[in-house]
């Protein structure tokens, strides 16, 4: 089948959810499989790196890459895929903006390693052995990838042509992206392949949001009996919907949970967390610093709340230390 476009899937620092999302296409996946020739998909098929390296440059039509970039191995793979692929699609929140792994950008690498290999309860490592990037065993040098000091989005490492947002991207936006690619009907490079309008647009609770919302208190989902009809922000929950791109059809609010922002911001916004803060906190009730602070105390982890999926794309990129 020489005429079928060649497609690669690759995963970096990710949970596997993006792979699941492809499987979640259900019967639709058969149409995809029929239309393309999958040359790389580590989760499902066995391919060797050398096989990909041996392919001519630009011989792969599309590479879908999910996961953030944390190690030199991931870095190396994505550089190679960039060379081999005509189009690179950043697939899912981790690849787009660091995702959950990027929350590690609040900590030093050394602190993370120390915790994981020494201090974490349940670790039994009296010699404090840490993985080494290079070790000699029976005369052979074995290597492991380097753990980078920070978690990066895919586009902070290689050029990216399109983005599919979401943790993970929903079957609907995956299918429409795949169809667009196969049909050659692609928008301008750099586009996020999901509607460029915020989530409230497609939220069923939209009409229940009062026009004069002024919050005096923030609550976390476990602290309240969530009304299944009413706007979640109006219930004092941090719902990132207004600052988050739509396309998921408001899955979380439909499941009675506030939006946590996995689709990232609209194209007009550089920093999703900053912009959300600018909007929601402008109109909280108190006017005095002390009372304002009392309201803000309802959000004990602002970075984790406002940058749950996007700390790599925060304008400041990581915590300084």
């Amino acid at each position: 089948m020489p005429d079928k476009p060649k497609v690669a899937f690759y995963w970096c620092a990710s949970c596997g959810g993006c792979e699941e999302a492809v499987v979640d296409l259900a019967e639709d996946i058969l149409k995809v499989v029929e239309a393309v020739d999958i040359v790389l998909w580590p989760v499902a098929m066995d391919f060797k790196k050398a096989d990909i390296a041996a392919r001519p440059d630009k011989s792969v039509a599309v590479a879908f890459i999910n996961g953030a970039i944390r190690t030199s191995e991931q870095e190396e793979w994505v550089h190679m895929l960039r060379r081999k692929a005509q189009v690179v699609v950043s697939f899912g929140a981790c690849a787009n903006s660091g995702g959950i792994p990027a929350l590690a950008n609040q900590f030093k690498k050394e602190d993370i390693l120390k915790f994981v290999y020494e201090d974490c309860p349940g670790i039994d490592n009296p010699q404090k052995i840490r993985p080494q990037t290079s070790t000699v065993d029976e005369g052979r040098t074995l290597t492991l990838p380097v753990l980078h000091n920070m978690v990066r989005s895919l586009d902070q490492v290689i050029e990216v042509d399109y983005y599919l947002p979401g943790c993970p991207p929903t079957p609907k936006i995956i299918m429409s992206a795949v169809q667009a690619i196969l049909a050659g009907k692609l928008p301008a490079r750099g586009t996020v392949l999901s509607p460029d309008i915020a989530l409230c647009e497609e939220c069923k609770r939209k009409d229940s949001k009062p026009a004069d919302l002024a919050l005096a208190e923030f609550k976390r989902p476990h602290q309240v009996q969530i009304d299944p009809e009413k706007c979640l922000l109006a219930q004092g929950l941090v719902c990132m919907g207004p600052a988050t791109r739509s396309g998921c059809e408001a899955l979380c609010p439909s499941g009675n949970m506030p939006c946590t922002g996995c689709f990232g911001p609209t194209s007009r916004v550089k920093d999703q967390g900053a912009k959300f803060v600018s909007s929601v906190f402008s109109n909280i009730v108190p006017k005095e610093e002390k009372d304002i602070d009392a309201v803000l105390d309802g959000i004990p982890d602002p970075i984790g709340t406002f940058y749950r999926y996007g700390l790599s794309k925060c304008i400041l990129r990581r915590k300084l230390n």
Binding site: V277, F281, K287, L296, I299, P302, L316, L320, N321
Partner: peptide
Amino acid sequence: PGDCHYAEGNYKTLRRMRMLNRMLKDMGI
């Protein structure tokens, strides 16, 4: 406070900047 040419713009600033302050601190600034 109370003197804003646009009535209450500075209160909006104060509120959002109180939160920004916390975030900057968390980011090590």
